[in-house]
Amino acid sequence: MKMGLKSNIRLYGMYISVILRSTMQYKLSFFLMVTGRFILAFNGFLAIFFLFSGFTRIGSYSFEEVLLCFSVIQMSFALAECIGSGMKVFTGIVRRGEFDRMLLRPRSPILQVLGTRFELGRLGPMITAGITLLIGIQKGQIVWTAVKIMVLFVMIAGGTLLFLSLFILGASFCFFSIEDGGLLNILTYGAKEHGKYPVDIYGKRFMQICTYLIPYTLIQYYPLQYLLGRTDRWVYGLYPFGTVVFAFLCYIVWLFGVKNYKSCGS
């Protein structure tokens, strides 16, 4: 098992190096892509910035606090898209018969699908997220301890895992119908778009949905309360680890999908 993990990581590294070499053959395209995506993500920041030019708070949150939340979600989503784009174009992979080839190889299909794409262009939103994170940290009132920095990283990691799981879940849907799991985009893009504000401003019902249906609050609301010093319950800082359970559930759906694919063909 240990040997397997090592060799899987090495294989993934090779996939990335192949993709990067291909990408770099089209440098202008790459540059435009990064800039364009940077601007798109930056729009989100501008929206917050302009809204707060006339107002002081939204719900109970100040500008800096919202920025912190915004950057965590942006960063997680950009990382997940960078790694998981293969899952987003999975319908095409199946339709072109590439998935058959993956099944013919003695490796995990998930690894192979992820290995088809590595979107470095997502650096754009990552830069945005980095900038806003710095602004949020600098202007905010939070006293940063080692633990809080750890919590921030765990939030981003948990968010990435959560979005990645949703991409895999979306891809699994395409095993059951010809259409892709477009409905799931609501959950992923929606979370990226509207998760820039802490979930509680949307009201109680949304809080419940975002806890029990898709566990967004685990990576956003609860650890954020701890970061902002609004609660003494340090356990909230560990909530992002809960996304592992969700990831596991999505993985089971995927396995089920692959089984179904094998019995239905393409």
């Binding site: 202008l28 395209s29 364009g36 940077f38 601007i39 798109l40 729009n43």
Partner: peptide, 12 residues
């Protein structure tokens, strides 16, 4: 030569 890049830039 890279329409996709320009498109994203514009629309952004």
């Amino acid at each position: 030569i890279s329409p996709t890049g320009w498109r994203i830039l514009f629309t952004g």
